[in-house]
């Protein structure tokens, strides 16, 4: 639990609540996300992962609680505002245009212009630099259309797009859900690379293999509450699964949070 008390969390949520009508989806959720670390967000379906992520990304505002980013409290109410803070989300369906090439997709909606024309060379150069910075060697050309890419390559492009904008926090929603073994491995390496480059990463995943392979910290949501956020080195898979399914595991979990220090 050392990370929870770390003073310099990039993103710090305290007592977050959110209701949709009569349904309380999140209740008193705490979360710390550190730069240079991968924080896995796990939990069963309906535990509130998506709602938490959407709140962080500004798609809907939280009802209650404090949202601290880079040490100052913020009220994020729109995706644009989240983007300007340096928060980017890669959604599960990637949101890429198949008919456009890799460069076009990475700059979609935020094209570099020179007066009224597009500055293709500047965009291509930055795209190549960003991909190189992430050690991506799987793309033959940044000028091939996205329709010709494999699932793993598409995920790579979507992640590279999120990184392009000097972002500080990248949220990945089940990035390996639809991928084969080799491609999953590539994407996980890329996730590690993001953290290595100093970014904070939130990884949503149902796959415990993935979580234990890349995560530094594991945050488990159970029925809208944060069961526990623990250092990945201090727990094993069975305990995390227990946290996901019952909200507690031995000393960890909801019933006796004050004992968690043990």
């Amino acid at each position: 639990m050392s990370e929870r008390s770390h003073p310099e969390a990039l993103l710090r949520l305290r007592g977050i609540s959110k209701s949709f009508g009569a349904v309380q989806v999140l209740a008193g959720v705490d979360l710390d996300v550190h730069a240079g670390q991968v924080t896995a967000l796990v939990g069963d379906n309906g535990a509130g992962k998506s709602t938490l992520i959407k709140g962080i990304a500004g798609i809907h505002a939280f009802d209650d609680g404090t949202y601290t980013f880079e040490g100052s409290e913020v009220h994020v109410t729109s995706p644009k505002q989240a983007n300007s803070l340096g928060i980017e989300v890669v959604y599960q369906d990637l949101a890429l245009c198949d008919n456009l090439d890799v460069v076009h997709n990475m700059f979609l909606g935020r094209e570099t212009r020179r007066r009224i024309t597009l500055d293709e060379t500047a965009m291509e150069r930055r795209a190549v630099e960003t991909l190189r910075g992430l050690s991506v060697r799987t793309l033959a050309s940044v000028r091939q259309t996205v329709s010709s890419l494999s699932g793993g390559q598409r995920q790579t492009v979507a992640i590279a797009r999120a990184v392009l904008w000097n972002s500080k926090l990248v949220i990945l929603d089940e990035p390996t859900a639809a991928l084969g073994v080799a491609q999953t491995e590539q994407v996980l390496k890329l996730v590690r690379r993001l953290a290595h480059n100093g970014l904070a990463v939130i990884l949503i995943s149902h796959n415990m293999n993935d979580v234990f392979e890349v995560a530094d910290s594991i945050a488990t949501l159970y029925l809208g509450r944060m069961a526990a956020q623990v250092d990945a080195r201090t727990v094993n898979r069975a305990r995390v699964v227990e946290l996901i399914t019952s909200g507690r595991s031995g000393a960890l979990g909801l019933a006796a949070p004050e004992e968690a220090q043990a």
Binding site: K80, L94, A95, C97, H104
Partner: peptide, 15 residues
């Protein structure tokens, strides 16, 4: 082209 290729992606990109 973006709207024709994937309108939802275009919308999310702020277009």
């Amino acid at each position: 082209y973006a709207v024709g290729g994937n309108a939802e992606a275009a919308r999310r990109a702020g277009i």
